[in-house]
Amino acid sequence: MSVENAPVVDVDEAAIPVEKKMYYRFESNDKKEFRVSELAIQQSETLNRLVEAMGYTSEDVENKPAIAIENIDGKTLKLVFQWCEHHKGEAIPVDDGSVPKIVEIPEFDAKLMDIDNGLLFKLIWAADYLNIVQLLNVSCKKVANMAQGKTPAQLRRVYLLPSDEEDEAAKRAAQEAQDPRAREVEEEFEERKRQGGNSFF
């Protein structure tokens, strides 16, 4: 099945499916609405738990407002739901802890992820947030593939990796940024001690 034919339906763009299966409605943070089948939702542990906890009936789905997913935009959510619909009913892989982890990117997923790095970044965040194990696997594998044939210097550029010196400088800056408050707390503590207070709080 091609990416274009995946049975995710934007409410604005296509007709509502007339199947008996339950379709849930979700809304992205930019107010885009999606209908997603019950079986597709099972790919996401987060959404699956959410709809289970809500206990929606078919009528509820139609009458109540769409479930808001506040930290994912419509463009990313569309990819997520296309992926879930395409892979609905598939077993969720269990990590056996082996390294390197063998992950194959199927053709559908490769086409779906033929996107710019910015959107791929958002897709990984979404897969992590919604706990979609296999989507996280394939999207991370795509990022891992960027390392192929690269030297350490090239890897630093591709993955924007700071050097040890930069890490140290960032750590020092973070400590310095924290220090004023730490000093305030310490001064407050000393002042209370001088006033004879037993408890800091």
Partner: peptide, 30 residues
Amino acid sequence: VTPSFPVLKLPYLAVKNVIKTMRISSMIYL
């Protein structure tokens, strides 16, 4: 210009997943 990807700005689990799915040679270079 090689497109860059800020891997360390991903969630921790995703960063680990990226590294785990790399080839051993890439892991060594990393």
